[in-house]
Amino acid sequence: MKFIDCSTLDALEYFQSKPEYKGISSMDELYTIDVRQMIGFTIYELIKPILKSHYEKYYQRLKSIVTNKHYRGRSGMVKAFVKLGKKETVSDLLKLLEEADLDVLDSTIKAVSKLKIKEAKPSLQELLKHEDSYFRDIAQKTLNKLG
Rank of each mutant, 00 (worst) to 15 (best):
Y71E: 10
H54F: 09
Q37A: 10
H70I: 00
I65Y: 09
H54Y: 10
E29V: 08
Y55S: 01
I24T: 02
S75G: 03
Y31V: 08
M27N: 04
K63S: 04
K48R: 12
H70A: 11
K48H: 11
P49Q: 07
M77C: 02
H54S: 11
E56N: 15
S53E: 15
R61T: 09
D34V: 08
I43N: 02
G73E: 04
M77F: 13
I24K: 04
M77H: 15
T32E: 14
R72W: 05
L30I: 11
F41N: 14
M27D: 07
S75C: 10
T42M: 05
P49K: 08
R72H: 08
H70N: 12
G76E: 01
Y44E: 11
K48D: 15
S53A: 12
L51D: 15
R61K: 15
M77K: 06
Q37I: 13
R74Y: 02
I39T: 04
D34K: 13
V78T: 01
I43L: 09
K69D: 12
T32A: 12
D28P: 01
Y44N: 12
V35Y: 14
L51Y: 13
I43K: 06
Y58L: 05
R36F: 12
K52L: 11
T32H: 07
L51E: 14
Y58E: 00
L30Q: 03
V35K: 15
R72K: 13
V66E: 00
R74E: 00
S64K: 10
H54K: 09
N68I: 02
R61W: 01
Y55V: 01
V66W: 03
N68Y: 02
E56H: 10
Y31R: 11
I24A: 06
I39H: 03
G23T: 06
V66P: 01
V78Y: 06
I33P: 00
